[in-house]
Design a binder for these strands. Structure first.
Lengths: 178, 178
DNA sequence: CACAAATCATTGGCCGACCAAGCAATCGGC
DNA sequence: GCCGATTGCTTGGTCGGCCAATGATTTGTG
């Protein structure tokens, strides 16, 4: 029902909104996302969603140059820090779904960054380890994360940064602690 | 090359880490993700990534009960606020890729929440509008977002909240401003 | 020892999100 | 009026994520 008697004062009429609309050519990062309610008011959730997306996109753009996709770097970091380990460890420590890790590891293997060999002691398990090529990325990924960190925190003083860290930790506890 | 001569001191040995590991049955939200470097140090990026994921998962769990997937609610909100509009408007205002919006709208149409009718004045365009069923979700989605907002900000005073809003806005500018 | 229960990993299905290509229609300048 | 940009949307492919179901192993218990 509601055969759309149309109403719509003029849906087609509005062409170019003419607002802002500038983040195109100048930077290759793309993806802006308009701020819905500029009046800071409530809606921290909206802000989180937008920041998260922008952050992920930025990270993705930086990582792409290394041949990685957003998310993969976290797995590699675990491997670099803790050495070869079984997939279930990665799943637990990254807090991801098993299937996500399975496929991510498969792709990383296909990219030549990790190896997957069956564990001798437990024939169910799979041991994941970095290859030479994977190890070689360690430094560059570190730089990328530093770059990302700087870009994210630009213009914030030390007090603001620690405040931010405190608040984020609180949010995380709120959201993961059930 | 690198036939993995290695050895692996004992990767298989480590069974259950025995740490924490509690967020399972008590709450249905799942997905925790271990904190890598507890020492607050740098790594705000890690914190952002974790908070974002937890936030999205929480939102997804709340929205699923309404038959929505995370992300779709933003599109519906635009529709509720601004009424029927062409897809390109949604794309611009949500800051998403055209293909993302196309498929999302298709799925929403398939779910009976929106309609897609060709625009008479511009035969390239498609006008998206909410259906009765879509309109009916408005209140519930509002409640879900409020619930999400509360859950996210639990335990924070007004000053902390405004501080957080300020910092997030700053981060957003940093990351989207190119 | 045998059999049920928990663990490990994989596959299939689905979404959001991206890029790259492509087609249709409109808008421009000439 | 015509032919090249530009805009609007769609499709195909890829990834990160999730859930659900399945098949191997281990482990635990009677």
């Amino acid at each position: 029902m509601t055969d759309a008697p149309d109403d719509a004062p003029g849906p087609c009429a509005a062409e170019t909104t003419g607002v802002a609309e500038a983040a195109d050519a100048p930077c290759a990062d793309g993806a802006a996302g308009a701020r819905l309610c500029p009046g800071g008011e409530g809606q921290v959730s909206h802000a989180i969603a937008r920041v998260a997306r922008a952050h992920r996109i930025t990270a993705g753009n930086l990582l792409r140059r290394l041949g990685l996709y957003a998310g993969q770097e976290l797995l590699m970091m675990r491997l670099w820090e803790a050495g070869p380990q079984r997939q279930s460890e990665l799943i637990k420590l990254l807090g991801l779904d098993p299937s996500t890790v399975t496929r991510m590891v498969q792709r990383l293997e296909q990219a030549g960054l990790v190896t997957r060999e069956p564990c001798a002691a437990d024939r169910r398990a799979v041991i994941v380890a970095t290859t030479e090529a994977g190890e070689a990325l360690r430094k560059e990924v570190g730089q990328v994360w530093q770059e990302l960190e700087e870009r994210t925190l630009a213009g914030l003083g030390d007090d603001d940064r620690s405040e931010l860290a405190r608040l984020l930790a609180h949010l995380e506890d709120n959201l993961t602690g059930c």
